[in-house]
Nucleic acid binder design. Structure first.
Lengths: 200, 200
DNA sequence: TGTACATCAGTGAACGCGCGTTCACTGATGTAC
DNA sequence: TGTACATCAGTGAACGCGCGTTCACTGATGTAC
């Protein structure tokens, strides 16, 4: 069997990813330890460094999976809608949904900091951009006069606003709020933004 | 001299606070170490536990100072303005200004997590509320129909949106942007929000 | 004011724990003939 | 197919470092008389 070694390696990588994802899902990034991950995956401690360059790399792969899953949800939420207002509402709702269902995995996307102040790798930044592109599309319909740079900036602003609202809500910062109230407030606030955008 | 001991203690506390604030300002929360703080303050390692219950407590005091300074800036920014639209713009601009000038101290307000999952103490939460109250005031003028709960929620949404936009911009997430472009985008986006609020 | 004693603030060596990463080793897999 | 050898994946004990917190001690300050 020629590809035996490779298959074993891929299986190991998969198990490590699964174990790390489960750990992060249940406990968040805080207290994520290599020993727990390798124990859960049923392999030796050193194995993690055969499959990944270091723990940061492994976390980045988990984050990548989370981000891609999120992007898929966003994509599906809007694929049958034409109106940009409806699209933005559907994306915001899908985002809130995803954040609620994947609490700590979602938080890890934003909490993770590379050690030694290294920058995020390009392949991961590209995944961010893919998500943003979905948001840019309805915005460009609402504000066709924006040039490309301004559209990018506006896209980020809208994302940051929606993200901030959801993150603050789910963390319970400042005031705690029920899921239902948060959902209603998000819808109302996206309406506010869209109304403002349409008027500009 | 009766109050000698107390005076020495207060001086020590002050020096420790100063040292911690300087460290956070220059290097952020990451890599903040008790040994560095006490060295900078010119006292022994154990002293920190005479003046504060633990490192979390010390960080919280620094954050409290930062938050109060921020609240003051916000308060001053609006005190000569009547129009709620202008007030919101002035607050957003003051917030951006503060965040740019106090980069890592400001970031510490949001990055700090209590150890052992303890909640923030009430006195610090009250300081948050003081800041939010300044934002609530112009919002209640723009949307007088909101009841108190809805106003609180809306206030948090507006704050979260503005904060998200600034944080994302200053962190350089997704795309990097010049300070000037960020300032312009913030102004434009607050206009969008206000226009949307006025229409609702 | 002076003296003897009690208190307690400040100290820093040592504790204790955590934890990412390495590397010499073992044995399974792949290869050559 | 069988045999001998080479390679290299997986292992986990050990390394190395970091770092918050404690506590027995010292000497300055406060107190009683």
């Amino acid at each position: 069997m020629v590809g035996k070694r490779q298959a074993v390696r891929e299986d190991l990588t998969e198990r490590l990813l699964d174990a790390a994802r489960t750990r992060i899902r249940d406990n968040g990034l805080t207290g994520l330890r290599t020993r727990d991950i390798t124990n859960d995956a049923g392999c030796g401690l050193g194995t993690i460094y055969k499959c990944f360059s270091d723990l940061d790399d492994l976390i980045l792969r988990v984050n990548s999976q989370t981000l891609c899953a999120l992007t898929q949800k966003i994509e599906r939420a809007i694929q049958s809608l034409d109106d940009p207002h409806h699209q933005l509402q559907a994306m915001a709702a899908a985002y809130l949904n995803f954040a609620m269902k994947n609490g700590k995995l979602w938080a890890a996307l934003f909490d993770h900091r590379m050690s030694a102040g290294e920058a995020l790798p390009d392949w991961h930044l590209a995944e961010h951009q893919t998500l943003l592109d979905f948001i840019a599309s309805p915005l460009s319909q609402l504000q066709p006069s924006l040039d490309d740079d301004a559209l990018q900036l506006r896209t980020r602003s809208v994302f940051a606003a929606v993200h901030g609202l959801i993150a603050t809500g789910l963390e319970g910062r400042f005031i705690s709020v029920s899921k239902k109230a948060l959902r209603a407030e998000l819808t109302a606030f996206v309406d506010v933004i869209v109304a403002g955008l349409e008027q500009a």
